[in-house]
């Protein structure tokens, strides 16, 4: 058996299409027997949000952030041709036709394939996101947690 290979991805973007690319690469890398970590920071954290509203004590700005940001992967917009929400509807229709996996299912598959999903706690604070608003299968960490995985990774991506 050769040495365990590693893939690490920083998901910074909160766009449906970019997150989809990140999760497709992650799932592909897991199929390549890589140990895979996706480090979610800034807008990428929204991919990990639960889709139901969750009560938590927040300040005014944090509440506004929580309201304005997409609640979960399925609600994210496109980086191009979003057309005020019509774009995602259209692309999901086309994806169905081509049997491409929707983002929420890609995330489920990632969890099933033991891909490590890390949420950046510093940006969670900035955006006012609490742990109970994110999926159960998420680990928490900072830049060192990411670097610890990335420094012996063969594939490192920033999306």
């Amino acid at each position: 058996m050769t040495e365990q290979k590693k893939t690490t991805i920083v998901l910074f973007s909160g766009d449906y299409d970019k997150a989809m690319a990140a999760y497709i690469i992650a799932n592909g890398a897991a199929a390549y027997d890589h140990e895979v970590t996706i480090f979610h920071t800034f807008w990428g954290l929204n991919a990990l949000r639960k889709d139901e509203p969750i009560q938590s004590k927040k300040g005014f700005l944090e509440k506004m952030f929580g309201k304005m940001m997409p609640r979960g992967a399925d609600k994210m917009g496109l980086s191009q041709m979003n057309f005020a929400g019509m774009g995602p509807k259209m692309i999901k229709h086309v994806m169905k036709k081509h049997q491409a996996m929707p983002l929420p299912e890609l995330i489920d598959l990632a969890i099933e394939q033991d891909i490590k999903l890390i949420a950046c706690t510093m940006t969670m604070d900035l955006l006012g996101l609490s742990q109970k608003e994110l999926l159960e299968d998420v680990d928490y960490g900072g830049v060192a947690a990411y670097l610890g995985e990335a420094q012996d990774g063969q594939v490192n991506l920033f999306i």
Binding site: I24, N27, G28, A30, A31, Y32, D33, M101
Partner: peptide
């Protein structure tokens, strides 16, 4: 569609 053939094959 991609990446499922590889995931299933693995």
């Amino acid at each position: 569609a991609c990446p499922m053939p590889i995931v299933r094959t693995k």
